[in-house]
């Protein structure tokens, strides 16, 4: 690594004045920006542990004087969207119901498409794939209305299947790309050897390709869990009243309350909504970055 090469020299001899000031500059720059990036999280956390009285009288950046979990309990169990005061737990449940099948199926389709595209010669497949990729750049607004009509015709508009199918559709480009690129890196001789061993399309997929896909499947799970959990627009349009995901419910709680805004509850609700992607992010670490990178560039 180049940073080690650069530092190897630096650590052996005492630093010059210039270098000392350089180090101070670097840490000041990074430290200040770190504070800027952490500020929102800090504000949300301290406010969510305050009582409403304290929020009203005190300052947003000060630490809570009386540590209280009331706002969290309220956000989870009894925060109101309009007349409905059942808290975010409903949205959480809905998000999980949407998340699990959407993630599983979109990854399965991505793996299958990627496998068929990189190992089998299907005429026209690359044209299809190009259209799919191009489609991933198009704003959802172009597709939404026709899809709404289509779901309405088939009678599933505003239901769990509708939102799951929608997530599968819009997750397909990036999932297919992810697996296709991964499989293109596998030796094609492996596939040839399996053909000679008499394995067919599905046998090769299930016995050889899928067991080798664990690393990329982890990346795919991270990407899809984060993306689907954070989705707002699709959930709003397709999930229907009874299945609104957590993000939509959060926005409703925060932006439709009448009377005095309960900032402590709102902020607790915001933190709650962020917990799943934040946990995924903190646990997955470099896999998360790998997902970002492989989702967009080849290899």
């Amino acid at each position: 690594m180049m940073s080690q090469a650069k530092s190897a020299n630096a650590s052996k001899r005492p630093l010059t004045y210039q270098e000392v000031w350089g180090r101070i500059g670097i840490y000041t720059f990074l430290g200040l920006l770190a504070l800027f990036f952490l500020l929102p999280l800090y504000v949300m956390l301290v406010t969510s542990f305050k009582s409403m009285d304290e929020v009203r009288l005190g300052l947003i950046f000060s630490l809570p004087q009386h540590f209280s979990l009331d706002a969290w309990v309220k956000a989870w169990t009894s925060a109101c969207t309009g007349l409905d005061c059942t808290g975010l737990q409903v949205g959480f449940g809905n998000s999980v119901k949407i998340l699990v099948p959407s993630v599983v199926f979109s990854i399965l389709f991505g793996a299958l498409n990627g496998y068929a595209l990189s190992f089998w010669k299907v005429k026209g497949a690359n044209v299809l794939f190009a259209c799919l990729l191009l489609g991933s750049f198009v704003p959802y607004q172009v597709f939404i209305y026709p899809l709404v009509r289509f779901y309405a015709q088939t009678g599933i508009y505003g239901s769990l299947p509708a939102i799951v199918i929608t997530h599968i559709i819009f997750g397909m480009p990036v999932m297919t790309l992810l697996f296709r690129n991964y499989y293109s890196g596998l030796p094609v001789e492996l596939f040839k050897a399996a053909r000679i061993d008499g394995a067919g399309f599905w046998k090769i997929f299930i016995s050889i390709v899928l067991p080798m896909s664990v690393p990329i499947a982890i990346v795919a799970v991270i990407m899809q869990v984060t993306a689907i959990w954070n989705d707002f627009l699709l959930g709003l349009v397709f999930a229907g009243r009874d299945n609104l995901p957590m993000t939509v419910q959060l926005n409703n709680i925060v932006n439709t309350t009448t009377g005095e805004r309960a900032y402590n509850v709102n902020m607790a609700a915001t933190v709650l909504t962020s917990l799943v992607p934040l946990t995924v992010y903190l646990v997955s670490g470099r896999w998360f970055v790998r997902g970002i990178a492989s989702g967009a560039v080849k290899g």
């Binding site: 080690q4 770190a34 990036f37 707002f232 993000t247 959060l250 709102n266 915001t270 995924v280 998360f288």
Partner: peptide, 28 residues
């Protein structure tokens, strides 16, 4: 990349907002 201490901490702090929903970013 200047071989700073606590590199992974800085990385984590700068990237965590990307894991959050746009709704959350807007509200906060």
């Amino acid at each position: 990349d200047q071989n700073v201490r606590a590199e992974s901490l800085f990385r984590t702090v700068f990237l965590y907002p990307y894991a959050m929903s746009f709704v959350v970013a807007g509200l906060i």
